[in-house]
Design a protein around this nucleic acid. Sequence first.
DNA 1: GCCATACCTG
DNA 2: CAGGTATGGC
Length: 173
Amino acid sequence: MSDISPYSGSTIQEGLSPNHLKKAKLMFFYTRYPSSNMLKIFFSDVKFNRCITSQLIKWFSNFREFYYIQMEKFARQAINEGVTSSEELAVGRDAELFRALNMHYNKANDFEVPERFLEVAQVTLREFFNAIVAGKDADPSWKKAIYKVICKLDSEVPEVFKSPNCLQELLHD
DNA sequence: GCCATACCTG
DNA sequence: CAGGTATGGC
């Protein structure tokens, strides 16, 4: 059965749908630390309650976990491969790191990832690289310092994301 | 106690 | 990603 309603432009979702998840992942390319208020604005077609809010916050928390795990993985890999300076690390669209991230948040690869995300990813990778080289990882909470840096690099999420039907506009064939 | 967030697991 | 646990603030 299709869930298309005759009032498709004003349907209020009782819960989060697969499309909401897809949209959240694309939003991650702009913001790693969205506030609950921001989420309410960008998911205006969702009827919020404590659980929905928690679930959305949880999604981004999971997104960040994957993101940082990849960063640490590639940073250590670079070190093992003999890289001596973070300056040598660049994250372009052809980088393995980017391909791993893109595969996770933009699996169909039908969304044009903003350049700014590549920059933030590069900063994050270098941050991990330098911390590990400096032996900071001996401290159980060494990643906290990095998180504090990265959380300041969130970008404005494009206005189009505020539309409940933005996926059709954002994804090209 | 309740709720939020951090860390870990499957 | 969802669940469960531990923890800290109110």
